[in-house]
Amino acid sequence: STVFLDTVDQTHIWGLRKAGLSLLTGCKGSAKPTAGIEDVAILPEKLPEYVAGLQSLMKPLGLNGSFYGHAASGLLHVRPVVDMHKAEDIAKYRSLAEGVSALTRQFKGSISGEHGVGIARTEFLPEHLGPELMGVMNEIKQLFDPSNMLNPGKIVRAPGSTAKELKIDTNIRQGNLSTISLPFEPVLAFAAKDASFVGNLEQCNGCGGCRKSGPTMCPTYIATNDEIMSTRGRANTIRAALEHTHNKGTQSIFTPELEQALSNCLSCKACTTECPSNVNMALLKAELLHAKQTAQGIPIRERILARVELLGKLATSASSRIPRTS
């Protein structure tokens, strides 16, 4: 093994570790390493047995996964590679999650060692904590939130709650068991890794690597500290506009929010190289603007700015007619 004592080398190594998730989720195709079972923690000395048990659950389902994390602490961030656009993969995902919950109880571990319970693990909490402890948590919830206004249905489900029951295979980010449909025909070429407009858009996994102070990505976020001005914010805004168009059956995706997000993008392409998943926001913006201008025409402002040489000639001609004073 190699020991790195230089602080620059150490920074690079930790940077690679931090970028690991995004590098994994930036893989080619719609099947991605997916969260849900990735936060199990058990006694470190039991980790090899747990991994063997986990692999025995994944193999019959035909699933592979990524394994990384904090082995010394007994916590591995295991993410099965599934395509959450497909019903059969979602069924495998649920089956694996149920098996992992039982396996974790077998090893007397925790299903949420670091990342929190959230939506994905709420349904499994009662079987891990038991009715007595869940009852205490319900009492605390009712004491501080008698009207059940704070995150209803998450983690603790208040008695008589009408909130939608949260399951690991619902509220899926991709939604509708299908790829995002486009109300326009793309014309630009996307990298082989992405293969399409939607493929590049879904490279964004929400890691937030674009919410940083440098070196470059994303300059508009650095200047404004506004989420919508980051690469992630723009990707989510595009996705939301497309899903709204699909669900509402409307033709135009150009909501005020999308207009704001795109108009302030500098198309500097820093995200293409600095984003671990290589989201190319400049290319996405160009495709969307082409679709808009094909449907609505080119605005007069853009027509004028596109002919700066003509403006120069007109200005020169006009200046020659202005009387000069000695």
Rank of each mutant, 00 (worst) to 15 (best):
S101I: 03
K212L: 09
S30F: 11
T170V: 08
P146V: 11
S30D: 10
S230C: 04
C27D: 01
G312P: 00
S147W: 10
V279P: 08
T272L: 10
E88C: 05
R321G: 13
N236V: 08
E259R: 05
R234K: 15
R301S: 04
F254Y: 13
A295H: 02
E98K: 11
L61Q: 14
L63F: 01
Y221H: 07
A41H: 05
A52P: 01
S101K: 02
S277L: 03
G29Y: 02
C275R: 05
E257S: 14
V156F: 14
A291I: 07
T7I: 12
R303L: 12
K292E: 12
Q293E: 15
P323Q: 03
A31W: 06
F67S: 00
T216N: 10
N64W: 08
T170M: 13
R232Q: 13
V187M: 12
C275P: 03
E123T: 12
S110H: 03
W14C: 01
V81M: 03
K313V: 11
L57V: 04
L43W: 02
L166T: 00
R173W: 13
K32R: 11
E132T: 14
L23D: 06
S181R: 15
I13S: 00
E127M: 13
G36C: 04
L182K: 07
K167L: 14
L57N: 01
Y93K: 09
T216A: 13
V308I: 09
L133Q: 14
T294G: 02
A318D: 07
S30Q: 08
N205M: 11
A192E: 15
L166C: 02
R234A: 14
A192C: 05
P323G: 01
N225T: 14
Y68H: 10
L182G: 09
S319N: 12
P276T: 00
G249R: 10
P256D: 03
G99T: 00
G208D: 04
A261Q: 06
P44E: 12
G20Y: 08
P44M: 11
P186S: 04
T2A: 05
G135W: 13
P80N: 07
V279S: 06
L262C: 13
T2V: 11
I180N: 05
I180F: 00
L47P: 03
S319P: 04
T162W: 08
R321D: 10
T25R: 15
E309H: 12
M137T: 07
A97H: 12
V136D: 01
N171C: 05
L289Q: 10
C268W: 05
G113H: 05
T220V: 09
D169M: 13
E38F: 15
S317C: 06
L133W: 15
E88H: 04
E127T: 14
S22K: 05
S22A: 15
P215Y: 01
D39T: 04
T34S: 07
H77N: 02
E202K: 03
G109W: 00
L103K: 12
L47M: 08
F184A: 01
G312N: 11
G20W: 06
I168S: 07
K212S: 10
Q10H: 06
D226W: 03
I253K: 09
K313S: 13
